[in-house]
Computed example of a mutant assay.
Amino acid sequence: MSITADPTADAPQRGLSRIKDVVRAYVALTKPRIIEQLLVTTIPAMLLAQRGIPSPWLVLWTMVGGTLAAGSAGALNCVVDADIDAVMKRTSARPLVRHQVPVRNALVFGVVLGVLSCGFLWLTSNWVAAVLCVGAILFYVFVYTMWLKRRTSQNIVWGGIAGCMPVVIGWSAVTGDVGWPAFVLFGVIFFWTPPHSWALAMKFRDDYERAGVPMLPVVLPARQVSFRIVLYSWAMVLCGLLLVPATSWIYAVAAVVLGAWFLTAVHRLHNVYRGGEEGKPMKVFHLSNSYLCAVFVMVAVDSAVGLPITGWF
């Protein structure tokens, strides 16, 4: 007598697996890696605004609101750029390209996250943070994604403004306004974005060219791109030094050392391209992530334990 396996026995497991796949797809729409970077810059800005440790609840609520906002921008970006993502190898596994999420659902998901982020920040922090949050989402979607990205090689320069907003939002969540140190932090990220993005675009130049996106490495020779990377890197480091009056020797020393470290790397990359050889831009790309993280970590450490330089005299 043979025993036939029950075909429905594994149904609950298959159903659970499908649910997990759907959840993973929606999470992927929010671009979690970008969210991590935004949160790394927001918390130090809040500590600097407080010149100490803010309310843990305020930090948590701001992080939740910021995560919802960044997720909204990421999901809406995926909707608008679905055609580009399908052409580029680097983005060909995104949920809309693989038809894991219907486009309509992704659009609704992005809008709902945006509304929730605004309402949440309004209720848990203040209206200034909420309004800045909405502005960042709208700028990223309509100005960068829908207008600049496909039209100009300066797309990431001005489009990167949206990525600078978390520090301003974090500051305003603590103080209810925007102080000059928040604008300095904004400037650091603003000048950091082009070297970071152009280094990546140099590696995936063919991808961008195939997709019709005029990133700077697509329209200019590598030597000219690396020269611009050097210029923006210098602007980034010098902008970071403007924060010294609001910090202590801890940040001042770290800013100089980290700046010299990064500038050495970008000058080496430019020298390689200037000599007619093939450079390794991904080293600068990864180093830019480490640099930004280290600088903001030192802002946080300094804010928690350091005495402002203006208080030395």
Score class of each variant (00 low, 15 high):
Val79Ile: 10
Arg150Tyr: 08
Thr67Val: 08
Phe139Cys: 00
Asn77Trp: 13
Arg104Phe: 13
Cys133Glu: 11
His99Asn: 11
Leu107Asp: 11
Asn77Met: 09
Trp158Pro: 06
Trp122Lys: 13
Val115Gln: 02
Leu68Glu: 01
Val59Ala: 13
Ser72Lys: 00
Leu47Met: 15
Cys78Met: 15
Ala45Tyr: 05
Trp61Gln: 13
Ser117Thr: 13
Val79Pro: 06
Thr42Val: 13
Pro54Gly: 05
Gly135Pro: 14
Thr91Tyr: 06
Ser55Ala: 09
Gln154Pro: 10
Ala136Tyr: 06
Thr41Tyr: 03
Tyr144Ser: 02
Trp147Glu: 09
Ala75Val: 07
Ser153Gly: 14
Ile43Ser: 08
Val103Ala: 15
Gln154Asn: 15
Arg151Phe: 04
Ile35Asn: 10
Val128Asp: 07
Ser55Asp: 15
Ser117Tyr: 11
Ser72Gln: 09
Ile43Gln: 04
Ala69Lys: 12
Phe142Gly: 08
Val112Ala: 13
Cys133Gly: 08
Ile43Glu: 02
Trp57Tyr: 14
Arg150Asp: 06
Ser117Phe: 02
Leu47Arg: 02
Gly52His: 08
Val108Glu: 14
Leu68Lys: 05
Gly71Met: 02
Gly114Lys: 01
Ile156Asp: 00
Ser72Glu: 07
Asp81Pro: 03
Val115Asp: 06
Val40Arg: 01
Phe120Asn: 04
Val64Tyr: 13
Ile35Met: 15
Ala75Lys: 11
Phe139His: 11
Arg51Thr: 05
Leu107Asn: 14
Ile43Asp: 01
Val80Trp: 14
Leu121Asn: 05
Gln100Asn: 10
Met88Asp: 12
Thr62Cys: 05
Ile137Gly: 03
Gln37Glu: 13
Val101Thr: 02
Ala69Pro: 01
Val134Gln: 06
Gln50Arg: 14
Ala93Gln: 15
Ala86Gln: 09
Val59Asp: 09
Ala49Arg: 03
Met88Gln: 14
Gln154Ala: 15
Ala130Arg: 09
Leu116Gly: 06
Pro56Phe: 05
Lys89Thr: 14
Trp61Asn: 15
Gly65Ala: 12
Arg150Trp: 05
Val131Gln: 09
Leu38Met: 11
Leu148Ile: 04
Thr91Gly: 10
Trp127Tyr: 12
Gly135Arg: 01
Val64Arg: 14
Ile137Tyr: 03
Leu48Phe: 03
Gly66Ile: 00
Gln100Tyr: 13
Trp61Ser: 13
Leu113Ala: 06
Thr145Gln: 07
Val40His: 02
Val134His: 08
Leu48Ile: 04
Phe142His: 09
Phe109Arg: 04
Phe139Ile: 01
Ser153Asn: 14
Ala136Cys: 07
Trp147Gly: 00
Val87Phe: 01
Val40Phe: 08
Leu107His: 08
Ser55Cys: 06
Asn155Tyr: 09
Ala129Glu: 04
Leu96Trp: 02
Gly114Ala: 04
Gly52Ala: 07
Ala129Leu: 09
Val134Phe: 11
Trp158Cys: 02
Thr62Asn: 13
Asn126Pro: 03
Val141Phe: 10
Leu121Tyr: 08
Ala49Pro: 07
Ile34Thr: 08
Cys78Val: 00
Ala82Gln: 15
